[in-house]
């Protein structure tokens, strides 16, 4: 599966609606190339690109930490 296909599958997760209160419409607009306004989706994308680009876990961790801490 491509990262795009995986993201589409992930966006169908009911937890995004139940825990993070994201609407179906919001989720339908999400894609890989556009930055999301939802932190959780951006973090998921970071992990996916990190895996795809063979980044180390530490590197991915640092990127996410920055994303969260700089909010």
């Amino acid at each position: 599966m491509t990262t795009e296909e995986i993201l589409n599958e992930v966006l169908q997760s009911p937890e995004l609606q139940t825990i993070y209160q994201l609407s179906k419409e919001d989720l339908q607009q999400e894609n890989f190339s556009m930055k999301s306004k939802f932190l959780v989706i951006e973090i998921i994308k970071t992990i996916m690109t990190g895996q795809e680009n063979h980044r180390s876990k530490e590197q991915i961790f640092q990127i996410i930490q920055k994303q969260i801490m700089h909010l």
Partner: peptide, 18 residues
């Protein structure tokens, strides 16, 4: 940070199962 990462782990795992 901790909560988000726990949810992300949960969401990804569930997607995989699905």
């Amino acid at each position: 940070f901790k909560e988000i990462m726990a949810s992300v782990e949960y969401i990804l795992n569930n997607s995989r199962e699905r």
